[in-house]
């Protein structure tokens, strides 16, 4: 039995979905269970956190990709109206990643963690799906479990606007402090320019091209 199965067995109550993603097991959990899952995984021997990142799924994108993401399912039509077409199928929404497509307002944010065990050579991908609205988009931090997560979480916050609760230093890492928007989000307006200028020794952001550079 692999290390990943151990972890999945131990934290069974937090596992929303388990899958195999290419060569590695995938575990989907919810924000409440994330810390338990990660702590358990670390205890079990997943000592290397490769990265933390996010994938932005606005609602229309989820609808376009619903089939392979598992939000819809092809089912045989139980009572075909047309008696001749016995194999007719219909697309029905099903719950996936802890979400039902009808419950999703704006879209979802997929936060991905990739764990690796140096001793066993096992991978484990952990996913959390949270609403993508900036005020609701938050997951607990794991930066106290892995010091390396600190910067990765700041990067995700900066580029995707995911807040990591309990993070000691939750501020932007690449962009200037008062930059508007989170540039890697799908709905970020790439046409709008923002400029940096310096006032009282602090970098500030403006949309006035004449004022900044």
């Amino acid at each position: 039995m692999s290390l990943a199965d151990d972890v999945i067995d131990t934290v069974q109550e937090h596992v929303i979905e388990e899958d195999v993603q290419k060569d590695k097991p995938l575990l989907v959990t919810d924000p409440e269970g994330l810390r338990d899952v990660m702590a358990e995984a670390q205890d079990a021997g997943f000592d290397h956190l490769c990265f933390v990142t996010a994938v932005d799924w606005p609602k229309d994108e989820i609808e376009d990709n619903a089939a392979w993401l598992g939000f819809t399912e092809e089912r045989e039509v139980e009572d075909p109206d047309d008696e001749e077409d016995e194999d007719a199928t219909e697309t029905v929404p099903v719950e996936s990643k802890g979400w039902h497509l009808d419950d999703v307002d704006d879209g979802l944010m997929e936060v991905v963690y990739n764990l690796y065990s140096y001793d066993e050579g096992d991978h484990l991908a952990v996913q959390v799906w949270v609403p993508r609205e900036v005020d609701q988009c938050s997951v607990p931090t794991v930066s106290d479990l892995w010091a390396g997560a600190n910067w990765h979480e700041r990067e995700v916050f900066d580029l995707y606007g995911v807040t990591f609760e309990g993070h000691p230093d939750m501020k932007r890492i690449f962009m200037p402090e008062d930059w508007e928007g989170h540039p890697h989000r799908k709905d970020y307006d790439l046409g709008e320019q923002q400029y940096i200028y310096r006032e009282d020794g602090i970098d500030k952001v403006t949309k006035d091209a004449g004022k900044g550079w």
Binding site: Q21, K22, K24, C50, F51, W68, V112, H123, A125
Partner: peptide, 17 residues
């Protein structure tokens, strides 16, 4: 689908999701 591939670069683990 989704895949994470990683290689050993001169500076360490260089991966791509």
């Amino acid at each position: 689908g989704e895949a994470y591939g990683r290689i050993e670069s001169p500076r360490g683990e260089l991966g791509c999701l």
